[in-house]
Simulated assay, not measured.
Amino acid sequence: MSALRELINKANLTKTQNVISEFILDHSGKACFMTSTEIALKLGVSESSVIRFSRSLGFAGYSDFQKFLRTDYQKRVSSISNSITNPAQRIIERSKHGADTAYIPNHFKNTLRNLENVFAENTAAIIEKAADDIIACNRKYIVASRGNTGLGDFSLLYLKHMLPGVEGTMSPSAGSLDCLSNISKEDCVIAFSFPRYSLTDKLAVQMAYDIGAKIIVITDKPSASLASYATHLLRAPCDGDTFFNSLVGAQFVTEILLDAISRKVEGIEKRLELIDRYMEETGNF
């Protein structure tokens, strides 16, 4: 998939061709078995647009491009498509492949592929702009739920070490909508969202969007539930062959963002020294 992204990034695509490229990137496992006519009907474009898109990437035509897609798909066959979001169904799908004695190296390959795609999908400029907006905003609200709360808690801890006004919305007694009730356009939301996308998280981000706040979304693809609300969209593929999402890529993006912030903010060492002075008494580091 990284090879396809590289071809697309180098190509000078039209608006219609960009629509086609986004569909294929988001649904490569399905697209490689679709004809050019089927893709055209699915997207409401002409078949000739699909063929021209293939040629713009350097292929002789759509059939040549389709062979490339299928070869790439075979390389990624150990990953369960994230179009299957139900955990039980993912287990069932995995069982169809039989016993996998090489599941550890395959898991490693999936993780490496996700990390490679993080580099392909997020430029330094996007990271820098997101970091600047987080620093400049008055209050920073972190939105995450269920399997994504680990990312949210990690961000909450280390952002509090660097910036004032950092607030979590993961309280068991007050929901995210309650925690965001005082949000203003001078604030920002940092939202972590991966399949199956939470409707509550979407409503929380909708609240922030309607008030005019900045929104930093960390999710898996441009067609994700919260992507359309993003002021800054940071992408982290979560493909894997387990019943849960692989969040190594998302953790990596989060660390890069925190690293960028730490290089722009002064006085962090004073906060850390203050915290450490008291933490030494507890031995809880």
Rank of each mutant, 00 (worst) to 15 (best):
K221Q: 12
V19T: 10
I190W: 00
F154R: 05
L180Y: 06
S46W: 07
I216N: 00
K96S: 09
S81M: 03
K160Q: 15
Y103N: 07
K75T: 06
S225M: 14
F154V: 03
A230K: 03
S81I: 08
D239P: 09
R90Q: 14
S81W: 01
I268E: 08
I39Y: 04
K30A: 08
T231A: 06
D72V: 02
T35A: 04
M1D: 03
N18P: 01
R5E: 05
S171D: 15
E266C: 04
P105K: 10
E280Q: 11
S83R: 11
D153Q: 11
S225I: 09
G147F: 10
V143Y: 00
N18D: 06
S223H: 07
I127H: 07
L57G: 11
I218K: 02
L199D: 15
M1G: 01
D201I: 03
A124F: 11
V265L: 07
S78M: 10
S228H: 14
S28I: 12
L156W: 02
S56K: 15
R196E: 05
I183R: 01
F33H: 15
V265D: 10
L25A: 13
S28P: 02
G150A: 13
S48T: 13
I268K: 10
D241Q: 14
E6G: 07
S155V: 00
N9A: 15
K10P: 01
A174T: 10
E273H: 06
L180G: 02
F119C: 09
D239R: 01
K185V: 05
E6K: 14
A260H: 04
S181T: 13
D72Q: 08
A125F: 04
G44C: 13
N86Q: 15
N18F: 05
D276Q: 11
C179I: 04
P87T: 02
T169G: 09
L180Q: 07
F252H: 11
I256V: 11
M170L: 11
Y73R: 12
Q251Y: 12
E280T: 09
A224T: 09
N138R: 15
E167R: 15
I211Q: 05
G240L: 07
L7P: 00
D64S: 15
K264R: 15
N182P: 01
R113W: 09
V50L: 07
I51M: 13
F154S: 04
K67H: 07
D72I: 02
I8N: 06
F108A: 05
L115C: 09
G212W: 03
S173A: 04
T219K: 02
E47C: 06
E280M: 03
G212D: 00
L112K: 12
K67T: 10
P87I: 11
E38F: 08
V50M: 11
L7S: 03
G212H: 05
K221H: 12
N148M: 05
Y209N: 06
